Each structure stands twice: as C-alpha cells, then as structure tokens.
Simulated assay, not measured.
Amino acid sequence: MHDKRAREILFGAFWKGGWIRDSDRYVSPDDFAYAKRMGYMFDPIELSHDQVVSQLIEERERADLTALSNSFLASLGSRRLDLRSALGSYAFASNFPQHEIATTSATIVPSGAQRCNWCGFYEFQNPAKVDLSLLNFERHRWGGVRRDNPVYAWLDLSLFRAEALQNPTGADQQMMHEILETARSMEPDATASSLEKALAGTLKSSKAERRVLIEILAVCGVLQPRSRAGYFGEFTFDFEREHTGQHFNDWGYPAIWWRGSDGVSETALAAYFPNL
C-alpha cells in the first residue's frame, strides 16, 4: 500500500538533508501509530539466526517471480524504489541455504556476537533488537542498500507481497533495453562506476538509485562478473565475497567485480525477464 503521509513520517524519522543522528530521532506516538498501521514503521523485534533463515526461505517459496520482474520494470518509470528492490532480494534468496549458524573463532567479535560465515548474520547471546523501520526507510529511499543482508531480504519480500501488482509500460521495457545495451557497449575495463555514469541520461534517477539498480542486476546475475561466483544458480557464502581491497570502493558484491568485458548474461536475463 502506497501512503504519502506514512511515507513522509518514515522519511522524517531518519532523514533531513542527511542522516538524523540516533539521539535526535523522534516520531510522535500518533505519527508512529499511523505509519505502523500503514505498514511503513514497525516496533523493533528480536530475531535469532535460525528465525531469519527459516523466515527468508519461507518468503522465497511464496514469491511470484513474474510479479517481482514486472514491478522492477515498472519502477524504471514510476521510481517506486521500494518495489524495485524486491527482485534483488529474491535473487539473493533464490539459492539461500537452510543452515545452522556457521562460525570460527575469527568470526566471534568483541561483543561476543557470532557472525555466520555462510549468511553474514550477527547473532548475540541475547538477541539484539532489529530496527525494521530503518531497513524500510532504506528500501523506500534508495531501493535498499543491504543487498546481502538476510533480514533485509526477508522484510523486503514480505512487504512486497502486500503491494498491488505493477505492470510495466512499453516505455519501461524500452528503458530496460537501453540499460542493457549500455552495459553491453561499455569498454572492456569499464567498472560498475563507469556504467552508473553512462546510465545517467537513460532514466530519471539519482546517482544512488542507479548504483542500487546496477547492484540488483548484478545479484540477479544479469551483470555477472565472469571472474567471481554470484547468486544466479548458486549462493555465494559470506566468507567467499571478496573485496577488491580498494578502500574507496564501496560497491556491493558481486557488482564490485563487474567489468565491461563481462557484458550481460543472456541466460540470467532470460530467467528474470523472459518477456523482454
């Protein structure tokens, strides 16, 4: 459900020309109750590793790929970034394994939390409260930024199911064709950052939106680096997601490794967008 007032309350809780500091965040009880009723804000909840795993797999099994794909395409014109996000969450979850927490001594952090080597979830001795409102803010503002976070993927897919189905227009499909042609035509050593700049005139978007768009297509395997594993037909464990070592490079995995020579995976494209 798209509700302007609830969205404004959500945004006002976290952003005012930039991030609002935790200590300065405030939402009146009445506003919070309204945004909560509309499905935009939530009470913090406690989640264990095993709960997250089971809930994400359950949402994956309930997902409708056609609806996810159509909503992604429709978002290119509508800029409903919350609906664009769900395809990336599905792609991340598509081969997500049923598993118990897998740790080594190296993944026990000073607080005592254990980081799962497989999915990256941090589990504390006393379950930490998760701020789902923050995740939903990121979902609405940018289309999500935590592509490999299983909590985000679960929330994203569950909220998507409550939305009305979106169908792309011919203009939306044409924009997608232009995005793909741009990716196919990049110089061999072009990076994801180069592609982001090249897409600036293709669709109405901010730099941050184009980055998220590219990262979603990379998680789907449409922009799959040939030199690295991904999520199309497989699941890349958290400990396998290599970084380039460039401290200034904050692209997500696997988009961080994509180069122009990798082009577009026609196999993944056909799987996720069979009607293009």
Rank of each mutant, 00 (worst) to 15 (best):
3 D>C: 06
3 D>W: 08
5 R>M: 04
6 A>P: 06
9 I>C: 04
10 L>Y: 13
12 G>S: 10
13 A>C: 13
18 G>T: 02
20 I>W: 15
24 D>R: 13
27 V>G: 02
29 P>C: 10
30 D>H: 12
31 D>L: 10
32 F>P: 01
36 K>V: 04
37 R>L: 06
45 I>N: 11
55 Q>N: 11
58 E>I: 13
59 E>L: 09
60 R>N: 10
60 R>G: 04
68 L>C: 03
72 F>R: 00
73 L>G: 02
74 A>L: 04
78 S>D: 13
79 R>V: 05
80 R>G: 00
81 L>Q: 12
87 L>D: 02
87 L>R: 04
88 G>P: 01
95 N>I: 06
96 F>A: 00
97 P>E: 01
100 E>A: 14
102 A>E: 12
103 T>C: 08
106 A>I: 02
107 T>W: 15
117 N>S: 09
120 G>R: 09
127 P>F: 15
133 S>H: 09
134 L>G: 12
136 N>L: 05
138 E>Q: 12
140 H>C: 01
143 G>T: 03
146 R>L: 12
149 N>Q: 07
150 P>K: 03
151 V>Y: 13
154 W>V: 00
156 D>R: 07
162 A>W: 12
162 A>I: 07
162 A>C: 11
163 E>M: 08
163 E>P: 01
164 A>G: 13
166 Q>N: 08
166 Q>E: 15
166 Q>A: 11
174 Q>M: 14
180 L>H: 09
189 D>N: 14
191 T>A: 08
192 A>K: 04
195 L>V: 00
203 L>E: 06
204 K>G: 07
206 S>K: 14
216 I>D: 12
217 L>I: 01
217 L>E: 07
223 L>M: 05
224 Q>I: 08
225 P>H: 05
226 R>T: 08
228 R>Q: 12
236 T>M: 10
238 D>V: 03
239 F>C: 05
241 R>W: 10
242 E>R: 10
245 G>P: 02
247 H>A: 09
248 F>W: 14
250 D>N: 13
250 D>P: 08
251 W>D: 06
253 Y>N: 06
259 R>P: 02
262 D>G: 07
263 G>L: 09
265 S>P: 00
267 T>S: 13
276 L>T: 00
276 L>Y: 09
